Amino acid sequence: MKYIAPYGSPDPDAAYVDRDVPGAVVGSKIPAKFPNWTMREIVDVITKSGITPDDVLQLAAAIRSQKMNYFVPGGTANALTITMAPVPVSYTELIGVPIRLKISTANTGAMTLNVNGLGNKAITGKAAAALASGDAAVGDIVAVMYDGTQFQVTGVVASGVAANYILAGRPAQAAPFFTANGVGGGASYVSNVRSTSTDLALTDSSFLDAGTSLTGGVLTIGPKDAGIWSLSTTLGLNTAQASWTSKVHLTKNGSTIFGFAQANIYGTSDTGIICASASVRLASGDTVRAEMLQNFGSTQTSSAQGRFSGSRIGV
């Protein structure tokens, strides 16, 4: 709001003075702009904060609410749009301004924000990285701030619960984990060929990223589930043999991270006979397999007692 000097003053920054009868000082005359502009400025803040001007102390309530910077965006899941009032002339006006966005549709990849048609600006997380699929879930309130180039995420409140992201970093939620058990012993193990145990099916899991999956015995890691994992597998064969040797492997991207050999297995029940475990750092896109190598001289099938499990133990 522009300062309004006393009526008739040649100095645009002149102060107002009281009438002083003994000193023969004439009090300042108040221009109409003074009360008009002052009241309209205050009323505008109150109304734009969603409050009906009809009481005292509403300016403080309006400022406290910060509703002028809260929006349910339009646009699409990955290309958000908002309309601010007062209207910003350029993005320069928004540098350092906190903006909160309530998400209606979960994102499926990198996101942008367009304010009042000024153009799309990237919404980025830690180290200016693009957001991954599912980083902004339905009901999340995503707080962003424009830094002169992009909108940086400064926090996310998931469905009204305590903030669980810092600069779109890793969620401070329960660690992701999974357990997969054999289903009927359906995987084929060709003699002297290292084969993936494809009959393993998820029985329990808590992945944080929609891109994380276990399909056909292959664990694929999504961005939010990356970190240090503790993995283990127990594999066996469905057919008893008098004597045989075998080896179980845990592999990352096709390379063995741990292999355990068991020789001279005897008996009529050889299900769940060999175990392997390892701790390994997994990045987004990495794959892990539980594999067996057997030397019967013929194709064998996996035991229904097979198991593959793991949990993230660090980031």
Rank of each mutant, 00 (worst) to 15 (best):
V138K: 02
L113S: 02
I265N: 09
N116H: 05
M111H: 01
R19W: 12
A14W: 04
T299F: 04
A163F: 06
G117E: 10
M84Y: 03
V138M: 00
I95E: 13
E41R: 13
C275F: 13
N36Q: 15
R307T: 10
G236T: 02
G267C: 03
T179V: 15
E291Y: 07
A129T: 11
I228E: 13
L57H: 12
D13E: 15
A137W: 05
S49D: 02
V43N: 11
T38A: 12
T105M: 00
T198L: 07
C275M: 14
I99E: 03
T38R: 07
L167N: 15
Q262M: 10
V97S: 01
D55L: 06
L118N: 06
N264W: 08
Q241A: 15
E291Q: 12
S213Q: 11
I95D: 06
N36G: 08
G227F: 00
T198V: 12
M39I: 12
R19F: 12
A106G: 00
A32M: 11
A136R: 00
G236D: 03
D55W: 10
G160T: 01
T203A: 09
G314H: 09
Y7R: 10
P6A: 00
E93Y: 09
T301L: 13
A180D: 03
G310P: 05
L131S: 06
S279N: 13
T239F: 10
I265V: 14
I63T: 09
I95A: 09
F34K: 10
Y7W: 10
I103C: 03
V142C: 01
P31A: 09
K2E: 15
E41N: 13
G217M: 05
S104A: 09
P31Q: 06
R170S: 13
K224S: 11
I257R: 09
V218E: 06
E41C: 11
D204Q: 15
F34T: 11
D270G: 10
R194H: 03
